[in-house]
Computed example of a mutant assay.
Amino acid sequence: MTVTPVIAGVGRTAFSRRSGRTVLELATEAALGAIADAAIAVDDIDAIATYHDNDTASPSEVASDLGTGPLTWSQSVVGGGSELCALIGTAADVVADGRASHVLIYRAMNGASGIRMGDYGTGSAAGYRQFMAPYGYATPVEVAAMAAARHMAQYGTTREHLGAIAVTMRENAQRNPAAVMNGRPMTMDDYLACRPIAEPLHLLDCCLETDGAVAIVITSATDATARPAVEIRSWAYGAGPHSVVPYEKYPDLTTMFPIWLREQLFERAGVGPADIDVACLYDAFTYTVLSQIEDFGFCDKGLAGEFVGSGAIATGGSLPVNPNGGLLSEGYIHGLNNVAEAVAQLRGSAADRQVPDAHLALVSGYSFSRGSALILGSAA
């Protein structure tokens, strides 16, 4: 019998700058929400997985706190956003293969009040970093800034193009009561006036630092009995040469990970870029949205600035991007909140931010030159 893996439940905590709670408490709350949303019992969970940067509670701790039964599969991946969609895809395969029936995936973090990913000096100085850190090239924003500068020089991309992304995400957040930046609108003038972080990227080009948690439950379509389930149509993981970080050996700083995985991603789902109704792109920085739009094939290389400036990524545009406000304006839960948004859109439950007739969603996660992506579809 063919098993169709689906996302059957979603749970989340409030997002804030200071939760005042442990990551275990956050993980458990989100997990219980996802289990309830899937209309299953805690005892039904037989597999748990997470990805992290040594800043969260382990699957065994969460299982103990929830009071699950024995687990047939568990995964704890140390890695950034590049692991997001790959972990969900792997869990889908686990369900399809019959190794587990109900997989809980969560991401819990105190990203503002606890361990801050963007802190300078928190990473290892070993390996390639020893040659980069002395020159101030050591954190994600500096990597993205170098790529953005190259794109600007090569294709004429402007700060206003990047600003169109930031302003659109903030506008989207005004229709999302759960967004950290709800109630805090932003204009292009606000964007252009904000302080620099790593030229050409400024403060409002960077995602939020957030405390909170999101969880999802993956099961089979036949076991999904509650709210409309969302099918996991395809997933792919890809990395190019010298993919640890884009430094002097990287072949083209204006490209990102989608060029290594897009063919298999779309082919496995039997669709193309034009078929995608909503894109939940990992927007750690404005520039990386622009690059992904090109590298997934939504527009020709070098034309994404014009594309985003035209309003195409707005909720009513040809490619709505992150109707929740994304990592830039909803919150940064390492990308899992964008998966939750894709599920809401495909369920038709996104209220004022709902994209009309949303049946296919693309979700991405990355660590610049390596990353993963999902294509999700409504079961109807």
Results as ranks from 00 to 15, higher is better:
residue 375 I to D: 07
residue 262 R to Y: 10
residue 90 T to L: 13
residue 296 F to A: 06
residue 100 A to S: 13
residue 258 P to E: 05
residue 380 A to F: 11
residue 128 Y to Q: 05
residue 112 A to W: 08
residue 11 G to Q: 10
residue 293 I to W: 03
residue 68 T to F: 11
residue 83 E to F: 01
residue 332 Y to P: 01
residue 370 R to K: 13
residue 180 V to L: 13
residue 365 G to N: 09
residue 26 L to R: 11
residue 269 A to M: 07
residue 37 D to Q: 04
residue 228 P to C: 09
residue 50 T to D: 05
residue 261 L to A: 13
residue 213 A to Q: 11
residue 173 A to Q: 07
residue 98 G to F: 04
residue 98 G to L: 03
residue 162 L to I: 10
residue 43 D to K: 15
residue 265 L to S: 14
residue 96 A to N: 04
residue 38 A to F: 01
residue 8 A to I: 09
residue 159 R to T: 05
residue 132 M to S: 09
residue 333 I to A: 06
residue 309 G to L: 14
residue 121 G to R: 07
residue 149 A to P: 03
residue 95 V to G: 12
residue 3 V to M: 06
residue 153 A to N: 12
residue 284 A to M: 10
residue 117 M to F: 15
residue 273 P to G: 11
residue 68 T to R: 08
residue 274 A to N: 11
residue 253 L to S: 04
residue 197 I to N: 02
residue 241 P to L: 02
residue 315 T to E: 03
residue 378 S to D: 11
residue 172 N to R: 10
residue 46 D to Q: 09
residue 153 A to F: 12
residue 263 E to S: 03
residue 282 Y to G: 03
residue 309 G to P: 08
residue 190 D to H: 10
residue 81 G to D: 06
residue 116 R to S: 00
residue 114 G to Y: 07
residue 285 F to D: 04
residue 99 R to H: 15
residue 160 E to D: 13
residue 269 A to R: 04
residue 316 G to T: 01
residue 134 P to M: 10
residue 279 A to H: 07
residue 7 I to R: 06
residue 55 D to G: 14
residue 58 S to T: 15
residue 75 Q to N: 12
residue 251 P to D: 06
residue 202 H to G: 03
residue 345 Q to F: 01
residue 166 A to I: 01
residue 94 V to Y: 01
residue 164 A to V: 04
residue 290 L to R: 01
residue 166 A to D: 09
residue 120 Y to E: 15
residue 96 A to G: 04
residue 235 W to R: 08
residue 306 E to H: 03
residue 54 N to G: 05
residue 110 N to D: 07
residue 294 E to G: 02
residue 38 A to R: 06
residue 7 I to K: 05
residue 115 I to E: 12
residue 292 Q to F: 00
residue 5 P to L: 07
residue 229 A to I: 08
residue 296 F to P: 00
residue 62 V to I: 06
residue 96 A to V: 01
residue 283 D to L: 02
residue 120 Y to K: 14
residue 158 T to G: 05
residue 235 W to S: 14
residue 272 G to S: 12
residue 6 V to Q: 12
residue 273 P to L: 11
residue 247 Y to P: 00
residue 270 G to A: 04
residue 279 A to T: 14
residue 143 V to N: 07
residue 30 A to D: 11
residue 364 S to T: 15
residue 41 A to T: 15
residue 95 V to S: 10
residue 310 S to P: 04
residue 131 F to D: 09
residue 73 W to G: 00
residue 359 H to Y: 02
residue 88 I to F: 03
residue 125 A to L: 09
residue 331 G to E: 05
residue 235 W to G: 08
residue 271 V to C: 12
residue 163 G to T: 03
